[in-house]
Write a protein that binds this DNA or RNA. Structure first.
Lengths: 245, 245
DNA sequence: GGGGAGAGATGCCGC
DNA sequence: GCGGCATTTCTCCCC
């Protein structure tokens, strides 16, 4: 058990020194901003990060129950019976109040960490994979470019077939849904209009597709190509064999 | 500083007893599942929740750098120089390895919390707001129903005008974008087909709309109605005046 | 369990 | 700053 006054002192210090702080505390949380919320009294995990991001986690679940992004100011007030922590994010017009009644434990320190996560298997990796292996789309597909942000939109892979017809490929690392089809539809319509073309092929490359999406795809004359997202890339290959027996 | 052996023991105990655990530790994190990642050595916050959700947070930022959902099994192995925590989520085919080299602090306990967050200001609240105030859409709009999940789709508000023409309203609590327009377009097309109608009105009700979305909207003959999301609802009104001076 | 859509989505990049 | 889009999205609800 930590006294409320030392909680208030250590919290203030962590905010000012950009330390990271975690505590287990009984609290009431209120929020107002894009929406409004109230969380009645209970025991939660409070996390203050070195950039002053603030998270409230309940004992279960993946997501924080309340949170405040970087950029808020902190006012810590001692009411005697409880500590009021008031977060105010002026630019986002977001506000949060945490009334802390009991502090079961707390720890704060400077965390040294200069590393960034290395991630593979994203949609971009998939698009590059198709660039290198155009036969995944079709035998006569000749990819021209990987254009993420061009004037024609954010088309994943862009090329043509043996007849010179333009082909637009929309990659999805997960199962393609209705949204993926409408997205492809937008790109095809846009490029038809921009280039004054009558025929442009649209292809969705994804590991799978939902039934309704498949129907809409065929209705609109597009194609689906089952493509698995690239995994087990070279630099992770060795590691993988260790990780998954 | 916590010894590696007591870290291993306390972690195992927390997993088995469904306690919540937080520690500050130097670690290396590897992940394989839907994607693959590697995070080199550094100091992070490790969080084990009572449902065995596991989170790794770096000192900055809103999101966890690595995580594993509820349902994984935990193997904790002492290598002498480090502790290997191996998470295996068989049904999701997700794996995570955390190699812990130093433990700066740790705490675990049973967290008692029976409360759920009360949230207002969602899209559903906005749809109800329009049901009660149909003039926000137009003077002659007569809403018929709030149908979230009907055979016609997930239409927010559904009604007709003075001529008996069907009106579909798609609400967005944030600015409407291209996606919102294609969504409305899908609903209108679907209901036209299902009911064999020639004309169905489509309306987007949102606080604002992007330029491109507005263009696509007018191209397709739909309308935009600026509507603010309902806030300061009665039960939070009193609280609000207190919270925001 | 799959499908569809919202979320206080967040984060990234480009303009 | 807005805009457009991916995300190991997550979460909820319905079929």
């Amino acid at each position: 058990m930590v006294s409320l006054s030392s909680f208030a002192k250590q919290f203030r210090e962590a905010v000012d020194k950009n330390h990271s702080l975690v505590c287990f505390a009984e609290c009431i949380v209120d929020y107002s901003g894009r929406a409004e919320s109230h969380l009645p009294v209970g025991n939660r995990i409070l996390i203050l990060k070195s950039d002053n991001t603030f998270l409230v986690h309940q004992k279960d679940g993946h997501m924080p129950v309340n949170y405040m992004k970087q950029g808020a100011s902190f006012i810590i007030r001692d009411n005697g019976k409880s500590i009021m922590v008031q977060l105010k994010h002026s630019s986002l017009k977001e506000y949060m109040n945490i009334e802390v009644g009991k502090v079961h434990s707390m720890h704060s320190q400077l965390l040294e960490d200069n590393e960034k996560i290395q991630l593979v298997g994203t949609e971009k990796d998939m698009a590059e994979h198709i660039m290198k292996n155009p036969e995944l789309v079709s035998k006569d597909f000749k990819p021209l470019s990987l254009e993420e942000h061009t004037k024609y939109g954010f088309i994943d892979v862009f090329g043509h077939d043996k007849n010179g017809t333009l082909v637009i490929v929309e990659c999805k690392r997960y199962g393609a849904d209705l949204n993926a089809v409408t997205q492809l539809r937008r790109y095809v319509e846009k490029i038809k209009k921009a280039k004054g073309l009558k025929k442009v092929k649209g292809v969705i490359a994804a590991p799978k597709i939902t039934g309704n999406a498949k129907n809409m795809l065929t209705d609109w004359g597009f194609e689906f190509k089952p493509v698995k997202p690239p995994r087990f890339l070279e630099k992770f290959d060795k590691y993988q064999r260790k990780l998954i027996p």
